[in-house]
Design a protein around this nucleic acid. Structure first.
Lengths: 198, 198
DNA sequence: AGTGCGGTTCACGCGGTCTTGAACTATATG
DNA sequence: CATATAGTTCAAGACCGCGTGAACCGCACT
């Protein structure tokens, strides 16, 4: 066990259908881990994906403590991870009336988040590249005495960058559309009634 | 260490327009660095991009030593970087007859390499994810006593993965096509005069 | 054979990222 | 108010990938 946390008395060891804290079922682990991998592949932190995956799989809001135990993370870590996910709008913080602790539930638009964040990241990035390249071209011309053949190469690089940029944008758009269909399916019966707080 | 270096242009020894070994001109640096950034963004090593960028920009084959100096890398590093690039087919090792040292020149299909490698990387990766997810589903059903709602969620994740995969494949394909046009342009006048004609 | 130089390999160290764990704040409960 | 638990922040450290530099290989030339 990583952090310190001890909530909830001991749950009576029921049949194995009753998951005991801190020990995910094998299939759950696999699924969670899969999400972790994907998310990592997309340039996020693996644990962000694991947390989201767990929340999504469970369907009902979990407390930070539960997440901590189930995924074997530290208290502080969970806090930060949840904050990230919340900021990106893929996890929601809710407080169920009678209870006082915060619970977190998975929004279904993980993909939208990914495409969105990637888009942003990529946008700033690519535009900077383009700027650099055209600046380089400017400087080269200014400096004078630069082999025209080389200037052409520079130019080609710039146009190449543009094309790549276009390809990326296209990708993001199609990803959105393509997955969009799936998303609506997600929403439909994922959790018809969800109260929001905050 | 510092040695002799051919001079690029035939410009009279102007103020600071003169390329001296180990000191790229500002515009060259910018371009090279830009390539480095892009390549890094795509999940490769920044220096792989820088090396390719330099070679492409120069147009003529350079020796490892020159690359080492110009980009301020270590001998060993250059060796490894070149090996990678060569293996991927984006850099060619040539030995000009009279001379005995190896020289390296940039192939123009950087993009094809990127898409290719990414494709491969992604292929293995995504298929593994899918396998994991379906395995998880199998296990869950087998274990029994699993909330049907959760099973559905699992299933949704699997189909989501499929869609993402499709989106990626599509992207790669379009990137190939899209950039393909540019590539032919690259080739057109980059290739014909390989030996510093003029 | 010896010398010099281009090229390769690899253990080590640096630098950056992620996680931990403890101190701290906030909020409920008696 | 005191006490306990939930939640946040951040310095310290674990971890990992990359590049360095030195040892090493091999070929050419004398």
């Amino acid at each position: 066990m990583k952090g310190y946390l001890w909530t909830g008395g001991v749950t009576p060891p029921g049949p194995e259908a009753l998951p005991e804290p801190g020990r995910l079922q094998r299939w759950e682990t696999m699924a969670v881990e899969a999400v972790g991998n994907v998310i990592e592949f997309w340039g996020f932190k693996r644990n962000q994906g694991r947390v989201w995956g767990l929340l999504y799989l469970r369907g009902e809001p979990l407390t930070a403590g539960e997440i901590e135990r189930e995924l074997d993370l530290s208290k502080g870590g969970v806090s930060m991870l949840l904050r990230d996910l919340e900021r990106w709008g893929v996890v929601q913080r809710v407080r169920l009336p009678p209870d006082t602790v915060w619970r977190y539930s998975a929004e279904t638009d993980l993909v939208r988040m990914v495409t969105h964040v990637i888009e942003e990241r990529e946008a700033g990035f690519v535009s900077r590249i383009r700027a650099d390249l055209s600046e380089a071209r400017r400087l080269a011309q200014e400096a004078g005495g630069v082999d025209t053949e080389r200037l052409q190469r520079l130019e080609k690089m710039a146009t190449l960058a543009e094309h790549v940029e276009k390809a990326i944008r296209l990708f993001i758009k199609t990803a959105r559309l393509d997955v969009g269909g799936v998303l609506s399916a997600f929403r439909d019966d994922a959790e018809p009634s969800r109260k929001k707080a905050r």
